[in-house]
Nucleic acid binder design. Sequence first.
DNA 1: TAGATTGTTAATCGATTAACAATC
DNA 2: TAGATTGTTAATCGATTAACAATC
Lengths: 216, 216
Amino acid sequence: MKPEKISEAVVRRLPVYLRYLSELNSTDIQTVSSQELGRKLDLNPAQIRKDLAYFGDFGRKGVGYNVSYLIEKIRQILQLDQPRNVALVGTGNLGRALCNYNMKENVKIVAVFDSDPSKIGMTMNRLTVQPMSELQETVKEKDISIGIITVPAGEAQKVSDLFVSAGIRGILNFAPTVLRTPDGVRIHHTDFTADLLSLAYYMDNEDENVSDNDQG
Amino acid sequence: MKPEKISEAVVRRLPVYLRYLSELNSTDIQTVSSQELGRKLDLNPAQIRKDLAYFGDFGRKGVGYNVSYLIEKIRQILQLDQPRNVALVGTGNLGRALCNYNMKENVKIVAVFDSDPSKIGMTMNRLTVQPMSELQETVKEKDISIGIITVPAGEAQKVSDLFVSAGIRGILNFAPTVLRTPDGVRIHHTDFTADLLSLAYYMDNEDENVSDNDQG
DNA sequence: TAGATTGTTAATCGATTAACAATC
DNA sequence: TAGATTGTTAATCGATTAACAATC
């Protein structure tokens, strides 16, 4: 509705809303209030209303939000109303796990790559593992806009650079290392090592910091 | 140094510091400044100094931080100077990937569980898959303090409840769903579906939001 | 000493929450 | 109409960054 800059935190919550709304949609519930959403998703209702209001007036006063309408709107906002093709590099355990993962939304891994010659030609979830040399061409051919990195830390920057020079503007990095990319390329870092190690901090501190949990 | 409450964001950065410091430690570099750390990790140097200063005076004015000393200190803060045992539930692709993952720090998966009878008895990275019925006992026996959830969304809350009633106070959740836990139980949610879908938002918005990248 | 860099305070920035008029 | 709930503004809260005295 307003030409305001949307914060990252807001955008990051949209898929969370979408996921629960999709769940609701498969029941016979057709309307949901920010309060109900907040209770279920452990978020402040005002925050949810504010998040959604950045993008439009999706609700009805005194009533709430229509579930399937809101789903449609959030899909549009996230650009999930059009198919989005993804390339994955690194066919280790994690890469394989992700390939088999059912994203449900319009996002699909359509090509997988590995630098290890012994992996080339293997099949992973109906995709044939390709050599890195084919990355650039395949990205164009298959209209790939997002890259996933599941290689060891030491190779991740190299892969990232390749992605960038192939024209990819969004990267999801699972390697435990900080990547540097030029402006205009967006990196999301799934750093579960850090998630796990930081969890250790809170253990046995029985006195302090035990009062709340969040899912950040 | 001061009995101040430490924010989650600060704690979450400690493993990131630790990781790069360990890298430095395997070179012959013995001292590092907040500026160098900031450049490498894409963080503001003032933030790094402030983060570390919450826990003590680890640096030397005009010099910087001694790498191996800082490593030792951060390990202590994160309680990684003592071994920490972890249980994992869900032996799908992702669970298997995590089992084979080398954490490097003192955190180790020491037991894996699955509710699917056909999985029981399988071996995963030298561990035998156990039935859920053995969870409570094994948690006590092996002094497990952290649980990892890699089951489908629909089963995650059930597993979480089991963990909690077994006395676990820290959970790393990979299932794409929000878990509710009692106060005192800490949940970190690795939600890569949301990471990926939110990435789509920024694609092709060639005009806006292209200026910076972060690794949140 | 001169240059560098910390630890820390103050200033800024941004995100969350409360409150409420509008209205279904 | 009465009750409920949105959209939005204002207040609060918290985190990041700038600046600088202390000091190696």
